[in-house]
Design a protein around this nucleic acid. Structure first.
Length: 588
DNA sequence: ATAGGGTTAG
């Protein structure tokens, strides 16, 4: 037990002070009192005691006090530099970590193999890559580029800065490519959205006869969720269970998420009910999964059960709750949940910017654009691009050009180079028929070299992901896909389907608009699905952007004529089509 | 004395 009272009689021996340090290693206040004792002790071993103290402080996260001790020391040893650089890196202060390294370098202190893992990791967290690149040069200069851990961090660094070529090179030329190296590479790819690359690596790993562990499995499942490949994911999970990973809660949660991201809410629920242990991530995953699948009742029911018998909700849980309200247009309930978190005494669930974005989305898309705008003006923190983006999205739907222009102005101050905001603005003008403004936005995009993200859709079949772009002819089954589309059009026109040319945001002739709509990527993917997917399975189409009114309508019709369940995941939510209707009730 | 990889949200 740590002693309660440190006002002890002097003088204290080195042994006593060391013992005190050890006993108080988890109590920052006591450590500071010990610091005072050390300073007045007059012991010759002061430096080793301070070293010990500084290490403890860093472990506890008090980098500020640790830095104070550090700055008071005369010529600190490399170990202390490393300790503090590590402390900053681990306490989410990458800039401090990197600048301490810069200082060390300027003073001519030679870094060692322990310095670089921390500082490379910290430099990866910075928004600009130049510090990281400089540090890579230092790694080479000091001959540490084949140190396994340093190289591992460098590889992660290049994935995060988007240089997959160099990341691959560093991975291929590793001297010892152990399980952690594979896992690092795969995880970094998943986190940066290179899901296909991650699965390719996972496959390669199998060929190299390296057995995946729980960490690999979690990343692989996450990749499957991103890609929407339910079958591959299930196979990966099965073999993980064979290797004894079924009771790992993170693996279980990753599987829940994978099911939810593939639109398999029922399966996810069964798994959830069968879990022996569920933590806040399990509950939040379910609530969020229900929310994006448009099952708001299930989401809110589960949340209320969580409040009764589950773990304490955190801010992610509340994002799920608000998102459930938003996707189902539950305006007053959303407002009530929001004031609940505003009034909460729990610092953990205090509303963050993401909650505000969610509320703006809820208010705005449900038609309360002005209220959404004043809601932003009343925010206690500076609104970010996410918040203004939600408002602009609502303005595009409701053709509110006045507010939309305000949002767009803010967005171009905060995030001028994000294509999707320019596209939203242009679509807003287009749907209001203001083609003069549409041209202005397009011109500005061209001037700034901002490229629209190309729309594509994908569908998993036979353990492969088939990708389609708009008007794509590259698929081997291309001709039968287009034939299938023609057949479908024949069938659904007789049932009253008419193209929604309002979905085309180009100022062209009617016929041309229809021609553009006919080959939208999600339609190609759906036709491929109808040809290939076994009749008893639903057809799951994933799209990287939001779907348009015409495709949505088209999917409703084809679900009716084909008598198939069609699940479409777009950028923001799921649409479950069955017998001519969609689960979103045409609100999205 | 110090060291690399994992789930929800963005």
């Amino acid at each position: 037990m740590p002693p309660k009272d440190l006002s002890l009689p002097f003088p204290l021996s080195k042994q006593t002070l060391a013992a005190l340090l050890k006993a108080c290693s988890s109590q920052p206040l006591q450590l500071k009192k010990i610091h005072a004792l050390v300073l007045t002790s007059g012991l010759s071993v002061k430096n080793s005691l301070i070293t010990q103290l500084l290490t403890n402080l860093v472990t506890l996260g008090d980098t500020q006090y640790a830095r104070k001790l550090f700055d008071e020391m005369h010529k600190p040893r490399i170990f202390l530099w490393n300790t503090l650089i590590r402390g900053y890196a681990k306490n989410d202060m990458p800039m401090e970590s990197v600048s301490l390294y810069a200082k060390m370098s300027a003073l001519g202190v030679r870094p060692d193999g322990f310095t670089f893992p921390f500082v490379v990791k910290a430099s990866t967290e910075l928004p600009e890559s130049w510090a990281a690149l400089t540090i890579h040069a230092h790694v080479v200069k000091y001959g540490l580029e084949y140190n396994a851990m340093v190289r591992n961090e460098l590889m992660i660094m290049y994935v995060k800065f988007g240089d997959m070529g160099l990341a691959d090179y560093l991975f291929e030329t590793m001297t010892e490519r152990d399980l952690v190296a594979w896992n690092s590479f795969i995880a970094a790819c998943v986190q940066m959205g290179y899901a296909s690359k991650a699965l390719a690596l996972f496959h390669q790993m199998g060929l190299a006869r390296i057995k995946p562990d729980a960490v690999t499995t979690v990343s692989a499942l996450s990749a499957c969720g991103q890609l929407g490949c339910l079958n591959i994911g299930n196979k990966i999970y099965e073999s993980a269970v064979n290797d004894g990973m079924e009771s790992n809660i993170i693996v279980e949660n990753a599987r829940l998420d994978m099911c939810m991201k593939c639109g398999s809410t029922h399966v996810a629920r069964t798994l959830f009910d069968e879990m022996r242990l569920r933590n806040v991530v399990s509950w939040s995953t379910m609530i969020l999964g229900y929310a994006v699948n448009g099952k708001s009742e299930e989401a809110l029911a589960l949340f209320s059960r969580m409040q009764n018998e589950g773990p304490k909700p955190n801010y992610v849980t509340y994002l799920g709750v608000l998102s459930a309200c938003s996707h189902a247009r539950l305006v007053s309930q959303g407002r009530a949940y929001f004031s609940h978190i505003v009034d909460s005494n729990d610092q953990n669930v205090r509303p963050r910017r993401e909650h505000y974005s969610c509320m703006v989305d809820l208010l705005g898309r449900s038609g309360h654009v002005e209220e959404a705008y004043s809601f932003i003006l009343g925010m206690p923190t500076e609104p970010d691009a996410g918040v203004w983006g939600a408002l602009l999205g609502a303005c595009a739907i409701h053709k509110n050009i006045k507010v939309g222009q305000v949002a767009a102005d803010k967005l171009f101050e905060l995030a001028a180079d994000i294509a999707s905001y320019h596209v939203l603005l242009s679509n807003m003008y287009a749907s209001a028929g203001r083609w003069d403004y549409v041209d202005k936005v397009r011109l500005r995009m061209r001037k700034k070299c901002i490229k629209k993200v190309a729309a594509y859709s994908s569908i998993e079949f036979n353990s492969e992901v088939h990708v389609f772009y708009s008007g794509d002819n590259s698929h081997p089954q291309s001709s039968s896909i287009y034939q299938k589309l023609e057949d479908l059009y024949m069938q659904i026109r007789s049932l009253g389907y008419i193209s929604e040319v309002g979905s085309v945001h180009h100022d062209v002739e009617m016929e041309e608009k229809e021609a553009m709509l006919r080959v939208h990527s999600e339609k190609l993917a759906a036709a491929f699905g109808l040809i290939n997917v076994e009749p008893e399975s639903p057809i799951r189409v994933m799209k990287n952007l939001r779907t348009c009114d015409d495709c949505h309508n088209f999917f409703k019709f084809i679900s009716r004529v084909s008598m198939r369940e069609i699940i479409m995941r777009d950028k923001s939510r799921f649409h479950h089509f069955r017998n001519g209707t969609c689960s979103c009730k045409d609100f999205w």
